[in-house]
Each structure stands twice: as structure tokens, then as C-alpha cells.
Design a protein around this nucleic acid. Structure first.
Length: 266
DNA sequence: TTGTGTTTTATTGCCTCC
DNA sequence: GGAGGCAATAAAACACAA
């Protein structure tokens, strides 16, 4: 095991005085006032003790030593034995001190890295949250629109059933001609591609609404930020989407949309 | 001056690798 | 089994407000 006796420990406390050149260098480096004051007091202590004096106190490394260690840490944050001995010799430290410094430095770096990662994650979470709330708002608007249009559709159904009864009374032959003409008009509308580009908010009749939903790209509903789906032309049997009460909960605010009913089985 | 919080240096115990 | 790494922690040094 790597345990050290008391003589090793006390040897580690030997302070190393910095040279005159180093001191001159320090004052010209533009450190903050507080940091410079700290260094100055450190220097004073260094001067007050001779290099041979063994202090029992825990001593901080001087600026030169810290800078050299930092520089080495930037190059490689792990310390091979040769480099450790070389550094220790150069800086007048015990190899053990150099090893400990690297160990503590790695721990500090790891903490900082965790903080950075946390910051990044937090930022992306906030962005996603904002995105989600925008989508939620959009969803609510669309759901409201669907509700209104459904109400309109049921009103029109009631009106048309009344008129059909009246028409039966007038003439059966006229009635047949009228129905055929309506069917023809409807299929003409269905084939009109201009319906795709129509803004749903401008749609006035229920037939137009059906056309719009059948022909428009699914992107209109889902948005294009996450995934773009192929346009899907609704089959007549799928038209129950609008007659069944919220069969797909597609516009549900509380729950993510289930797409199984929106896409045909493969 | 003193209390308190932060940073730095060092120790301890455990783990992995060769 | 020894060397070295890491996490947790102690303790000294330091900063700073009251």
C-alpha cells in the first residue's frame, strides 16, 4: 500500500522560496488585486523563512510552482512516474506533492466539467420546455378550431335533412337531378388541388373542411420541427375521424398524440 | 477581531491493473 | 502484492463581512 511515514510528510512541508526573477515576473502579470495580495503575503512568508527551515505548517505552493504544474496539467492530466520525478526536481517539491497536486487538480477539473455539463443540459431543457409550450398553444388553437367546425358541420346536417324532405314533396325526378348535381360538384371540389393551399381558418363550409383535412399535408397538424410525414389521403372509411368523438385524441393537450389511427396500416 | 464560507493541500480507505 | 487512481474527508490557509 502507498502509505507514507511521518518523515515523508514533514519533508513535504519544506517551503521553496521563489527567485528574484520570478517575483519580478509575478508583479507584471496583471492578476486581480486580491490574488496579487495573496501572492505578496505568500512571498513575504517565503522570505521570512530560509529554504532550510522546515515548517510544520501546511504550506501553499508558490506561484511559479502552481503555474508550472498547471502548464503540465494542460499538456496531460495524468502523471507518468518520470514526469513526476522531473517536475518534482524542477520545482523543489516532493514527488508525492506533485502527485497529490495532480490528483486534486483532476478532482477540481471534474467538478468544473460537471458544472459545465449541467449548464448545457439545463439550457437545452429550457429551450425544449419553451418549444413544448409553443406547441401546446398551437395545439389548443387547432383543437378549438376543430370544435367550431364540427359544430358547424352538425348544423348543416340538420339543415340539409329538412330540405331533402321538402324536395321529395315537390318532385321525385327533380330531386334525382339535384342529388346528382351535388355529388358532381362535391367530386369536382375533391379533385381541386387548390384546397391544399387554403388556410383552414377561411374555410366556410363543412365540405370544404373535409376536403382540407383530406388533402392537406400532415405537416399542417404536426408542424415540421421534429418529423415530416408523407401526405396521406384519407380513405372514405377513415372519415370516421371526424364523426367519432375524439377517437384519436389527436388534439389532446394532456397527452401526446397517438398516430396509429392517423396512418394507414402498412 | 471574529465568525463563517471557500480554496488548497494532504490523508485515508477502497478499487483496479499489471 | 505493490503502484496508482479516485472519492470522501480533514485541516490549514485564506477571504470577507459585520
Amino acid at each position: 500500500m502507498k502509505r507514507f511515514n511521518s518523515s515523508d510528510s514533514s519533508a513535504a512541508f519544506i517551503s521553496i522560496s521563489s527567485s528574484k526573477e520570478e517575483r519580478t515576473q509575478k508583479t507584471n502579470q496583471g492578476y486581480s488585486r486580491d490574488f496579487q495580495a495573496m501572492l505578496d503575503s505568500l512571498e513575504e512568508e517565503d522570505y521570512s523563512e530560509t529554504a532550510n527551515h522546515v515548517s510544520e505548517k501546511k504550506r501553499r505552493l508558490n506561484l511559479h510552482q502552481v503555474k508550472a504544474l498547471e502548464k503540465n496539467f494542460e499538456v496531460e492530466n495524468k502523471l507518468e512516474p518520470e514526469r513526476k520525478l522531473k517536475l518534482a526536481g524542477e520545482l523543489g517539491l516532493q514527488p508525492r506533492q506533485v502527485a497529490i497536486w495532480f490528483q486534486n487538480r483532476r478532482a477540481r477539473w471534474k467538478t468544473k466539467q460537471l458544472e459545465r455539463d449541467y449548464g448545457t443540459l439545463k439550457a437545452s431543457y429550457e429551450a425544449l420546455k419553451l418549444d413544448y409550450s409553443h406547441l401546446e398553444q398551437k395545439n389548443e388553437v387547432l383543437a378549438q378550431k376543430v370544435k367550431e367546425l364540427k359544430a358547424k358541420l352538425s348544423e348543416e346536417k340538420v339543415d340539409s335533412s329538412h330540405s331533402v324532405k321538402e324536395e321529395y314533396r315537390v318532385s321525385e325526378s327533380d330531386n334525382n337531378a339535384s342529388v346528382h348535381s351535388k355529388i358532381h360538384d362535391f367530386s369536382e371540389n375533391n379533385n381541386n388541388s387548390s384546397a391544399i393551399t387554403k388556410d383552414p381558418s377561411n374555410i366556410s363550409s363543412s365540405h370544404e373542411l373535409m376536403n382540407w383535412f383530406q388533402l392537406s399535408d400532415s405537416r399542417v397538424i404536426l408542424g415540421n420541427r421534429y418529423q415530416v410525414y408523407q401526405p396521406y389521403l384519407m380513405k372514405p372509411e377513415d372519415q370516421s375521424l371526424f364523426s367519432t368523438e375524439e377517437s384519436c385524441n389527436f388534439f389532446s393537450v394532456d397527452q401526446a398524440p397517438t398516430l396509429h389511427c392517423y396512418f394507414p396500416e402498412q
